[in-house]
């Protein structure tokens, strides 16, 4: 077989034979195809792994936050519980909180602690009966409606239920204002 690697006939010099041109084109194309496929084959699992959280939704679960009698009617308190899918290495980061108010003997309401402007944790001022945000000054009434500042939407509410004398809140994703 004729040697194709000919330094006297570099590609594009115009001195190559049709056979050389054909072989060079074949080697170029096959190298690009094989190399591209290999890169793609390696990239797919890596990129898929990085983007995997997008396809995994944590299940919503009910978390007990206390006995009914531990909450006074009309009082708003912060309650702490574990999020829906704590992993062993999450540590304290797996903890989350909500503002819980006992409205009547058997009715509770729970608000996300996240301001609907940019997610900072709102604080409850019991005498003022207002939630205030330390970041950009968002203020919410006790029913979660916007009272002042940049937020445009009311505080997010979480489902609450009473089971066997225990108050339970349903876990939820961080409320993202899309």
């Amino acid at each position: 077989m004729k040697e194709n690697h000919n330094p006297n006939h570099p590609p594009g010099s115009g001195a190559e034979t049709p056979e050389e041109i054909s072989r060079r084109k074949f080697f170029r194309d096959i190298s690009l195809i094989v190399g591209g496929c290999t890169a793609l084959g390696l990239a797919v699992p890596a990129v898929g792994f990085i983007f995997a959280p997008l396809t995994r939704r944590a299940p919503n679960v009910w978390r007990t936050v206390g006995k009914v009698e531990a909450f006074k009617i009309g009082e708003t308190v912060d309650v702490h519980y574990e999020d829906a899918s704590p992993v062993p290495w999450a540590g304290v980061t797996a903890r989350t909180a909500a503002w819980l108010r006992r409205e009547t003997a058997d009715q509770f309401v729970a608000f996300a602690i996240n301001c609907t402007h940019l997610g900072c944790p709102v604080r409850w001022l019991p005498q003022a009966r207002l939630f205030m945000c330390p970041c950009h000054g968002g203020v919410f009434y006790e029913n979660g409606a916007v009272a002042a500042g940049p937020p445009e939407r009311p505080l997010t509410r979480y489902p609450v239920r009473v089971v066997n004398g225990e108050v339970q809140i349903e876990t939820a994703p961080v409320p993202i204002m899309t």
């Binding site: 983007f51 959280p53 997008l54 995994r56 939704r57 944590a58 999020d83 829906a84 899918s85 704590p86 992993v87 062993p88 290495w89 999450a90 980061t93 797996a94 989350t96 939820a172 994703p173 961080v174 993202i176 899309t178």
Partner: peptide, 20 residues
């Protein structure tokens, strides 16, 4: 794609084991 990007940032639904 906002919801997508937010979940990508957090590494899931909430701040947790995958975030840092």
């Amino acid at each position: 794609i906002g919801d997508w990007l937010a979940r990508f940032t957090l590494g899931g639904d909430t701040v947790g084991g995958a975030t840092l």
